[in-house]
């Protein structure tokens, strides 16, 4: 089983992002997804910067994939998408069907991302026929769905599961970070750069509930399937996705790597894993030993 670092969901200053990926080159991770998947207005790193980081990580022995933007609205979004699709070197993760169309037209293998809503074998089979060699289960799905999918997996298809991080729950046209400051998206002043792990949304009783990250809404709790690793292994999952956060990602990767190597591993935090168990996502289900 391989470990993957998912695309960076947040907007960090340029140097912070460059330093982060320089460090990732030395972390125990097999696959790194790169690219801006949330908001096309973010520009600390341009696509060419990501191509450069990709080349450096590949030189360091990492498998690199480029992730497309999840919500594509404008012609300039499509232009960026086409450039990514035509990069000629790295696998592309398609996060909406426009990307799938362009990748299939070029007859190149691709990864079917977590927002494609793949919930059944028929849809996965169609994507395999179009060139998908890897699919990421939608984070809201759990082990019951996975078991069925694994039983009839298209030949050569590798399954990836979102295993650690704040869960991307929703995407909007509206920027909720800008909204907090009474700004419109077009003149947002890039406020999200001040929140390296998103802005906490608490209930009026002070309970952490969600996170605002630009046009994306995430879970406040960190999703963590470390304790469910035996199930994931038994199901034949090929890749576990770890989602970047501003601190501690090396420790998280080390813990998952240790567990995969059969060593004891623990992470401390206010975690959830409900989706995996077919429960509300925010729940934490502790399995009886």
């Amino acid at each position: 089983m391989k470990l993957a670092l998912g695309p960076l969901q947040y907007y960090w200053p340029r140097q912070t992002t460059l330093d982060f990926y320089a460090a990732v080159a030395g972390m125990p991770v097999d696959i790194v997804y790169l690219g801006e998947t949330v908001c096309s207005r973010r520009h600390e790193l341009r696509l060419d910067d990501y191509f450069e980081i990709a080349a450096r990580l590949a030189d360091a022995g990492k498998e690199v994939a480029l992730s497309t933007q999840t919500l594509i609205e404008s012609e300039s979004d499509l232009k960026a998408l086409r450039r990514m699709v035509e990069n000629g070197r790295f696998l592309v993760e398609a996060n909406e069907m426009g990307a799938v169309r362009l990748l299939a037209q070029r007859s190149v293998p691709f990864a079917a991302g977590p927002t494609l809503n793949i919930f059944n074998t028929e849809t996965l089979g169609l994507l395999a026929d179009m060139g998908a060699t890897r699919w990421v289960m939608p984070p809201e799905a759990g082990h019951d769905l996975l078991a069925g999918m694994q039983a009839r997996l298209p030949e050569g298809m590798v399954t990836e599961v979102f295993a650690y991080g704040r869960v991307p729950l929703a995407y909007s046209a509206r920027c909720f970070t800008a909204r907090r400051f009474n700004l419109q998206k077009d003149t947002c002043e890039f406020k999200c750069i001040d929140f390296p792990d998103g802005m906490a949304v608490r209930t009026r009783e002070g309970e952490d509930f969600l996170l605002l990250n630009g046009i994306q809404t995430q879970s406040a709790k960190v999703y963590n399937l470390l304790n469910d690793l035996p199930d994931l292994l038994a199901a034949g999952v090929g890749i576990l996705r770890i989602s970047p956060q501003s601190a501690g990602i090396a420790e998280v990767l080390a813990a998952f790597r240790a567990a995969l190597d059969g060593r004891a591993a623990q992470l401390a935090g206010d975690y959830c894993n409900g989706f995996w168990h077919g429960r509300p996502g925010l729940e934490l289900i502790r399995k009886a030993a």
């Binding site: 995407y171 909007s172 509206r174 879970s219 077919g278 429960r279 509300p280």
Partner: peptide
């Protein structure tokens, strides 16, 4: 307000 088909807020809170 969310992109339809891209919202798991209810799933997260209620299943």
């Amino acid at each position: 307000v969310m992109v339809e088909g891209r919202c798991a807020l209810s799933a997260y809170a209620t299943g």
